[in-house]
């Protein structure tokens, strides 16, 4: 497989993971739950029968399987820091779809976290 194609697959997979989180958030936002041992089963049914949560979980599972395929072909120290792009994509999507107020402090935190993940991937 060409390295360009692999990079494209990696980026698409990262995007898939972010989209999954947005779908999960959408489902849970319109269908909030309280956790308790009493009635846990009913709560679980309520959670996972929501179409957004169901679809989000499915996409998340697919992106994980694709990820396993990717790291069998790409060095983990390259692939791993790329995944922290998720933090930026998720923040942008939250702003667009949920009108969340992503403060400057929140962007700074995301920047610090990405820097940390990149450093962590150096051996």
């Amino acid at each position: 497989m060409s390295s360009l194609l692999l990079k494209l697959i990696l980026l698409s997979d990262i995007l898939l993971g972010s989209i999954a989180q947005v779908l999960l958030k959408k489902g849970m936002k319109e269908n909030p739950v309280q956790l308790s041992f009493k009635g846990l089963f009913t709560t679980l049914i309520k959670m996972y029968t929501n179409k957004f949560v169901f679809l989000g979980s499915l996409i998340y599972a697919s992106s994980t399987i694709i990820w396993i395929g990717i790291i069998s072909k790409v060095e983990l120290s390259y692939a791993y820091p790329m995944v922290s792009l998720n933090f930026v994509i998720v923040a942008l999507l939250s702003k667009i779809f949920f009108k969340e107020h992503v403060t400057k402090v929140r962007w700074l935190s995301i920047f610090l976290i990405i820097t940390g993940v990149v450093l962590l991937s150096f051996s």
């Binding site: 989180q21 947005v22 999960l24 958030k25 849970m28 936002k29 269908n31 909030p32 739950v33 309280q34 956790l35 679980l44 959670m47 949560v53 979980s57 922290s84 998720n86 933090f87 998720v90 923040a91 999507l93 939250s94 702003k95 949920f98 969340e100 992503v102 929140r106 935190s109 995301i110 976290i113 940390g116 993940v117 962590l120």
Partner: peptide, 28 residues
């Protein structure tokens, strides 16, 4: 995943998601 979904039903996504990076630090 059940705990995560419950958290998402009340916290903003742009707040909750980056917190997952605690996992990287913990595993390391």
């Amino acid at each position: 995943s059940v705990l995560w979904l419950t958290a998402l039903s009340r916290a903003e996504l742009s707040y909750a998601y980056p917190l997952l990076s605690i996992g990287y630090a913990t595993v390391a």
